[in-house]
Design a protein around this nucleic acid. Structure first.
Lengths: 203, 203
DNA sequence: GTCTATACCGTGATAGAC
DNA sequence: GTCTATCACGGTATAGAC
């Protein structure tokens, strides 16, 4: 999937700086709202120099997305069909919440793109993401059939995990504005979501 | 709060057309990603003519936001302290889901702005929104103290309503991509969320 | 292989004719 | 009250010097 990997050390360093800067800027302003000037500035390069490493704004964006997709889907991929059902699902929630804590920019990047209609991601959603979700939904449906967890729609259960965990990264400013200072939203979220999903899944 | 209301009929019509077009464009691309050309085109006006009605891009945006804020907070405002607790909260969820169904553009407008750090809304969040939420959280805390519903954090309960209901408007393309055709996501969501909150709130 | 200078276009906003 | 013409600016992308 990847093109030729960068060769020289300076290339590697600059490409990395660009992608990190791009993550920062794209996640804050969305694709169209981001400017090459900002990305170049953040990366410590001139704008034309930036375009030496990537042929276009879209090229930066696509490279960024495909590099992050794997990390993004890992928590769901790790759902073990042979594990203890409720515990597996709660562990999934915790992994996803961990991503919101450690990689909020990545979360906002995807959020921005999807809210704006996902014009550069729609294919990935309908193929990779759909097949992974369908796969895991079948696992969950199996657990339901065995009476291990409550009878709830597996697809919407997965949506609810996404919505509830990503909310704390994507809508962070709102959460903090409402809670006020002296709060650790993500720590509180872990307690709250553990309760929520425990009650939801109990057969 | 409002400036002088428009006088002539044509002004009223044009202002309305502009705000509707702006809602469409801002909700799809965010503030910076939106262009006056697009808004003008969608509204059937020339760009300079548009700027006759609103002095700047930001003026359009702010007018739009403040006009929608009330509608947006109504479902929570309607939570009745004297009602039957669990039923009140479930009705709140249904009202919020109704907004996702009927006003997805409004939902995405707010989502875009908040994901991007809410630079033009932060004040509203920390004042109007916070005081409303604190108020209703106290009501919910009262219900908990009376043993009418389960003991869960009221603020995060409200966040969970937002996250779960708005997800179906803001991440609509993802939901549809994963479910595939022949689904009515919002109808399914109503069933799912009713179950979820019923189980969560049961004392 | 790396960066500087620059072209060229679309953007938000204004001036002035109608 | 509305439109045409235009401006200054910042946007993406390229040509060519080092």
């Amino acid at each position: 999937m990847n093109a030729d990997p960068p060769r020289t050390r300076i290339q590697k360093k600059n490409r990395h700086a660009i992608l990190d800067a791009a993550l920062e800027v794209f996640s804050r302003h969305g694709f169209r709202g981001a400017t090459l000037d900002q990305i170049a500035g953040e990366a410590g390069l001139s704008k034309p120099n930036l375009l030496y490493y990537f042929s276009s704004k879209e090229a930066i964006f696509v490279t960024l997305l495909s590099g992050l997709m794997e990390t993004w889907l890992d928590p769901l991929r790790a759902l073990d069909p042979d594990g203890e059902p409720a515990e597996e699902l709660l562990a999934y929630v915790r992994r996803k919440l961990q991503l919101s804590r450690d990689f909020p920019r990545e979360s906002r990047l995807f959020a921005n793109e999807i809210v704006q209609g996902a014009p550069r991601m729609e294919h990935l959603l309908a193929t990779d993401l759909k097949s992974l979700v369908d796969d895991k939904a079948a696992v969950i449906q199996g657990w339901i059939a065995e009476g291990k967890i409550a009878d709830i729609d597996p697809h919407h259960l997965i949506f609810s995990v996404w919505a509830l965990t990503q909310h704390y990264a994507d809508f962070d400013v709102q959460v903090r504005a409402v809670l006020g200072p002296d709060h650790d939203p993500l720590a509180e979220a872990e307690t709250f979501l553990t309760t929520l999903f425990t009650r939801l899944l109990r057969p």
